[in-house]
Simulated scan of single mutants.
Amino acid sequence: MPTSLRRAPQAHPEDSLPGVVTRTFTTTGDLDYWASVRHAESAARVAEELATLVRTGRAAVAREPLAHAVELLLSTLDHADDASGALDNLLNRLLATHAEACRQALPDPVDLADWLVTVQFDTGRWCPVDIWAYGPALGPGGLDHYRAAVRRRWAADPGDLSARDAVERLARWERDTTTLIEVIGGDLKHAAQYGRLARALADIGDPVAARSWAERGLAAHPDDPPGAGLHDFLSRTPL
Protein backbone atom coordinates (compact mmCIF):
# COMPACT_ATOMS: atom_id res chain seq x y z
CA MET A 1 0.00 0.00 0.00
CA PRO A 2 1.40 3.45 -0.84
CA THR A 3 2.77 5.28 2.16
CA SER A 4 0.25 8.09 1.76
CA LEU A 5 -2.63 5.64 2.11
CA ARG A 6 -1.40 3.89 5.23
CA ARG A 7 -3.48 4.47 8.30
CA ALA A 8 -1.75 6.55 10.98
CA PRO A 9 -1.30 4.82 14.34
CA GLN A 10 -4.38 5.22 16.50
CA ALA A 11 -3.74 7.60 19.40
CA HIS A 12 -5.13 6.66 22.78
CA PRO A 13 -7.84 8.84 24.32
CA GLU A 14 -6.19 11.45 26.48
CA ASP A 15 -7.93 10.35 29.66
CA SER A 16 -6.62 6.80 29.18
CA LEU A 17 -2.95 7.79 28.98
CA PRO A 18 -2.10 7.28 32.68
CA GLY A 19 -3.33 3.70 32.47
CA VAL A 20 -1.62 3.12 29.12
CA VAL A 21 1.69 4.30 30.56
CA THR A 22 1.31 2.07 33.61
CA ARG A 23 0.52 -1.02 31.52
CA THR A 24 3.22 -0.35 28.95
CA PHE A 25 6.09 0.62 31.22
CA THR A 26 5.50 -1.77 34.13
CA THR A 27 7.68 -4.89 34.08
CA THR A 28 8.13 -7.83 36.42
CA GLY A 29 11.21 -9.92 37.02
CA ASP A 30 14.57 -9.63 35.33
CA LEU A 31 14.81 -8.65 31.66
CA ASP A 32 17.56 -10.23 29.60
CA TYR A 33 19.19 -8.49 26.64
CA TRP A 34 16.48 -9.21 24.08
CA ALA A 35 13.61 -8.68 26.51
CA SER A 36 15.05 -5.25 27.28
CA VAL A 37 15.26 -4.41 23.58
CA ARG A 38 11.67 -5.53 23.00
CA HIS A 39 10.43 -3.56 25.99
CA ALA A 40 12.22 -0.44 24.76
CA GLU A 41 10.64 -0.82 21.32
CA SER A 42 7.16 -1.27 22.77
CA ALA A 43 7.46 1.59 25.24
CA ALA A 44 8.96 3.89 22.59
CA ARG A 45 5.64 3.91 20.74
CA VAL A 46 3.86 5.33 23.79
CA ALA A 47 6.75 7.73 24.41
CA GLU A 48 6.35 9.04 20.87
CA GLU A 49 2.62 9.46 21.37
CA LEU A 50 3.32 11.58 24.46
CA ALA A 51 5.96 13.56 22.57
CA THR A 52 3.42 14.27 19.83
CA LEU A 53 1.08 15.75 22.42
CA VAL A 54 3.86 18.04 23.63
CA ARG A 55 4.74 19.10 20.08
CA THR A 56 1.12 19.90 19.29
CA GLY A 57 0.38 22.14 22.26
CA ARG A 58 -1.07 19.58 24.68
CA ALA A 59 1.83 19.44 27.10
CA ALA A 60 -0.49 19.70 30.10
CA VAL A 61 -2.02 16.35 29.14
CA ALA A 62 1.33 14.63 28.65
CA ARG A 63 3.33 16.01 31.56
CA GLU A 64 2.22 13.69 34.36
CA PRO A 65 2.16 10.51 32.21
CA LEU A 66 5.71 11.36 31.12
CA ALA A 67 6.84 11.71 34.73
CA HIS A 68 5.27 8.35 35.59
CA ALA A 69 6.91 6.73 32.56
CA VAL A 70 10.31 7.97 33.77
CA GLU A 71 9.69 6.52 37.24
CA LEU A 72 8.61 3.13 35.89
CA LEU A 73 11.50 2.94 33.44
CA LEU A 74 14.00 3.67 36.20
CA SER A 75 12.50 0.77 38.15
CA THR A 76 12.86 -1.50 35.11
CA LEU A 77 16.48 -0.49 34.58
CA ASP A 78 17.27 -1.83 38.04
CA HIS A 79 16.70 -5.39 36.82
CA ALA A 80 17.36 -5.21 33.08
CA ASP A 81 20.31 -6.11 30.88
CA ASP A 82 20.54 -2.87 28.94
CA ALA A 83 23.82 -3.62 27.20
CA SER A 84 22.25 -2.36 23.97
CA GLY A 85 21.55 1.02 25.56
CA ALA A 86 17.98 0.95 24.25
CA LEU A 87 16.37 1.56 27.63
CA ASP A 88 18.85 4.25 28.57
CA ASN A 89 18.23 6.03 25.27
CA LEU A 90 14.50 5.84 25.92
CA LEU A 91 15.01 7.30 29.39
CA ASN A 92 16.92 10.25 27.95
CA ARG A 93 14.15 10.86 25.40
CA LEU A 94 11.49 10.75 28.10
CA LEU A 95 13.40 13.20 30.29
CA ALA A 96 13.92 15.61 27.40
CA THR A 97 10.24 15.44 26.48
CA HIS A 98 9.16 15.83 30.10
CA ALA A 99 11.38 18.90 30.47
CA GLU A 100 9.81 20.42 27.37
CA ALA A 101 6.33 19.63 28.70
CA CYS A 102 7.22 21.37 31.96
CA ARG A 103 8.44 24.44 30.09
CA GLN A 104 5.18 24.62 28.15
CA ALA A 105 2.78 23.72 30.96
CA LEU A 106 4.40 24.96 34.14
CA PRO A 107 4.00 22.68 37.16
CA ASP A 108 4.32 23.81 40.75
CA PRO A 109 8.05 24.67 40.90
CA VAL A 110 8.66 23.16 44.33
CA ASP A 111 6.86 19.95 43.34
CA LEU A 112 9.02 19.76 40.21
CA ALA A 113 12.18 20.30 42.26
CA ASP A 114 11.15 17.52 44.64
CA TRP A 115 10.45 15.19 41.70
CA LEU A 116 13.88 15.88 40.19
CA VAL A 117 15.51 15.08 43.52
CA THR A 118 13.50 11.87 43.79
CA VAL A 119 14.40 10.54 40.34
CA GLN A 120 18.07 11.34 40.87
CA PHE A 121 18.52 9.97 44.36
CA ASP A 122 15.62 7.80 45.49
CA THR A 123 14.97 5.37 42.64
CA GLY A 124 17.84 3.00 43.30
CA ARG A 125 19.60 3.92 40.07
CA TRP A 126 21.72 6.91 39.15
CA CYS A 127 19.71 9.18 36.88
CA PRO A 128 21.66 12.30 35.87
CA VAL A 129 19.33 15.19 35.02
CA ASP A 130 20.21 18.07 32.70
CA ILE A 131 19.13 20.85 35.01
CA TRP A 132 19.45 23.44 32.25
CA ALA A 133 16.48 21.78 30.53
CA TYR A 134 14.33 22.14 33.66
CA GLY A 135 15.63 25.50 34.86
CA PRO A 136 13.07 27.65 33.03
CA ALA A 137 10.21 25.63 34.51
CA LEU A 138 11.70 25.67 38.01
CA GLY A 139 12.07 29.43 38.14
CA PRO A 140 13.86 31.15 41.03
CA GLY A 141 11.81 29.52 43.78
CA GLY A 142 12.10 26.02 42.40
CA LEU A 143 15.82 26.43 41.75
CA ASP A 144 16.40 27.62 45.31
CA HIS A 145 14.52 24.57 46.62
CA TYR A 146 16.40 22.21 44.30
CA ARG A 147 19.79 23.76 45.08
CA ALA A 148 19.23 23.42 48.82
CA ALA A 149 18.15 19.79 48.44
CA VAL A 150 21.10 18.64 46.34
CA ARG A 151 23.59 20.50 48.49
CA ARG A 152 22.12 18.85 51.60
CA ARG A 153 22.63 15.48 49.94
CA TRP A 154 26.21 16.31 49.08
CA ALA A 155 26.97 17.74 52.53
CA ALA A 156 25.58 14.60 54.16
CA ASP A 157 27.79 12.36 52.01
CA PRO A 158 30.60 14.12 50.09
CA GLY A 159 31.47 10.78 48.50
CA ASP A 160 28.03 10.43 46.89
CA LEU A 161 28.81 10.71 43.18
CA SER A 162 25.19 11.33 42.23
CA ALA A 163 24.98 14.30 44.61
CA ARG A 164 28.32 15.63 43.41
CA ASP A 165 27.16 15.35 39.80
CA ALA A 166 23.90 17.19 40.56
CA VAL A 167 25.75 20.01 42.32
CA GLU A 168 28.26 20.29 39.48
CA ARG A 169 25.58 20.36 36.76
CA LEU A 170 23.71 23.09 38.61
CA ALA A 171 26.89 25.11 39.12
CA ARG A 172 27.76 24.83 35.43
CA TRP A 173 24.31 26.00 34.40
CA GLU A 174 24.34 28.90 36.86
CA ARG A 175 27.97 29.73 35.99
CA ASP A 176 28.79 29.48 39.68
CA THR A 177 32.59 29.63 39.77
CA THR A 178 32.84 29.30 43.55
CA THR A 179 30.81 26.09 43.66
CA LEU A 180 32.64 24.60 40.68
CA ILE A 181 35.95 25.15 42.45
CA GLU A 182 34.51 23.48 45.53
CA VAL A 183 32.91 20.49 43.82
CA ILE A 184 35.52 19.75 41.14
CA GLY A 185 38.67 20.96 42.83
CA GLY A 186 37.99 19.33 46.16
CA ASP A 187 41.23 18.60 47.97
CA LEU A 188 43.26 19.26 44.78
CA LYS A 189 45.69 16.44 45.48
CA HIS A 190 46.08 15.42 41.85
CA ALA A 191 47.06 17.26 38.69
CA ALA A 192 44.00 15.86 36.90
CA GLN A 193 41.75 17.72 39.36
CA TYR A 194 43.37 21.01 38.36
CA GLY A 195 42.96 20.15 34.69
CA ARG A 196 39.31 19.23 35.02
CA LEU A 197 38.60 22.34 37.07
CA ALA A 198 40.35 24.59 34.54
CA ARG A 199 38.33 23.10 31.67
CA ALA A 200 35.06 23.45 33.59
CA LEU A 201 35.76 27.11 34.35
CA ALA A 202 36.57 27.73 30.70
CA ASP A 203 33.31 26.00 29.72
CA ILE A 204 31.26 28.44 31.80
CA GLY A 205 33.04 31.45 30.34
CA ASP A 206 35.60 32.31 33.02
CA PRO A 207 38.95 31.99 31.20
CA VAL A 208 40.81 34.13 33.73
CA ALA A 209 39.96 31.79 36.60
CA ALA A 210 40.53 28.80 34.32
CA ARG A 211 44.08 29.87 33.47
CA SER A 212 44.79 30.74 37.08
CA TRP A 213 43.89 27.25 38.28
CA ALA A 214 45.78 25.60 35.45
CA GLU A 215 48.87 27.61 36.38
CA ARG A 216 48.44 26.63 40.02
CA GLY A 217 48.23 23.02 38.91
CA LEU A 218 51.49 23.28 36.99
CA ALA A 219 53.18 24.90 39.96
CA ALA A 220 52.09 21.99 42.15
CA HIS A 221 52.69 19.32 39.48
CA PRO A 222 55.37 20.60 37.08
CA ASP A 223 55.62 17.18 35.40
CA ASP A 224 52.02 17.62 34.10
CA PRO A 225 51.25 13.89 34.26
CA PRO A 226 49.02 12.15 31.69
CA GLY A 227 45.37 13.00 32.13
CA ALA A 228 45.96 16.51 33.43
CA GLY A 229 46.69 18.31 30.16
CA LEU A 230 47.67 21.53 31.89
CA HIS A 231 50.32 22.64 29.37
CA ASP A 232 47.97 21.86 26.50
CA PHE A 233 45.11 23.73 28.17
CA LEU A 234 47.19 26.85 28.70
CA SER A 235 48.43 26.79 25.12
CA ARG A 236 44.85 26.65 23.86
CA THR A 237 43.29 29.16 26.25
CA PRO A 238 44.02 32.81 25.39
CA LEU A 239 44.91 35.36 28.02
Rank of each mutant, 00 (worst) to 15 (best):
S162L: 08
L74K: 02
P128A: 01
T3H: 09
V110M: 00
A220S: 12
H79A: 08
V150M: 04
W126H: 12
L201I: 15
D232P: 01
R63Y: 10
N89L: 06
K189I: 11
L218W: 14
F233M: 06
S4D: 10
V117Y: 09
P140F: 13
A96W: 02
A214Q: 05
D176A: 05
C127D: 06
E182N: 01
Y146C: 00
E174Q: 15
S162Q: 15
D32W: 15
L230N: 07
E71D: 02
A166L: 07
H12G: 00
L138R: 07
W34F: 15
I184R: 05
T24C: 12
T118H: 12
I204P: 13
R58H: 12
R151C: 00
G195A: 03
F25G: 03
R38M: 13
E182V: 04
R164E: 12
A198K: 03
G85V: 03
D176R: 04
R55F: 12
L5E: 10
P140G: 01
T28R: 15
L230K: 03
L170R: 02
G186A: 07
D165W: 15
P222Q: 14
R55M: 09
H39W: 11
G217I: 09
R152P: 00
R147I: 11
A214M: 04
Y146Q: 00
A67F: 10
C102K: 00
A163N: 10
